[in-house]
Design a protein around this nucleic acid. Structure first.
Lengths: 110, 110
DNA sequence: AATCTTTATCGTAATATTGCAATATTAAAT
DNA sequence: ATTTAATATTGCAATATTACGATAAAGATT
């Protein structure tokens, strides 16, 4: 036991959970916000922006990449990391739909 | 080591991460979707809807509650769990803003 | 009061995450 | 070719999460 039973849930549920999980750490939220702030993809100084050691930052970037939230390509001895717009839009869309459905609810009791 | 360094990040970053983390498991995504589907707060049959044992479901509900995504009140020998609309709206709003900022970006390279 | 039903908690095993020092890798700069 | 600079990987310790059987708690039913 201990491992998540992903096979028992729908692809969409797993997909949303994967994206949400990737943003389930403040360092990774900070990375996304920093990528937006600098208004460019090239950001070799991302380690200096975070209160974490370089290997830790590298690991968080890897997780964001695995989850599909950022795209990255090797660019000399620096790296070019960019937010994957589609992933963010997927979340935006999902919570928009959920939020609308809650508003439409008739039998509220709380 | 091993514990998240929350103190090094902003309250907002931690807040978003907490909500995202709570939805970072397909069972908890499924619980939220089920709460919406039944269109009511009273849902004593939530355990039957999930492919997990009762203590596990109870634990996931607790985590959703701790994260502020659902509200719950004891109601006889059943429980009244409801989605906390504000939490979902917070996420919707956050991803809406992030998404808009990405669209406005000028220096895209990927 | 005894039983049933439903949810919560405890205890514990399996697994995953977090963080970093040490080291490797890779390409640019000298 | 050597050094420098930036990122990745490895290895490991600390902690957190996931899952569930056993048990507790608490109101409902009989």
């Amino acid at each position: 036991m201990g491992a998540t039973k992903t096979e028992h849930f729908t692809d969409k549920q797993n997909s949303i959970a994967t994206l949400a999980k990737a943003l389930g750490h403040p360092a990774r939220v900070a990375i996304i916000e920093y990528l937006i702030k600098v208004d460019t993809c090239i950001c070799g100084d991302i380690v200096n922006e975070l209160p974490l050691a370089q290997p830790t930052v590298s690991q968080h970037l890897k997780e964001l990449k695995n989850a599909g939230l950022i795209k990255g390509e090797i660019e000399g001895n620096a790296i070019c990391y960019c937010i994957d717009k589609k992933a963010i839009e997927k979340l935006q869309n999902y919570f928009g739909i959920i939020s609308a459905k809650i508003t439409d609810k008739k039998n509220n009791c709380c």
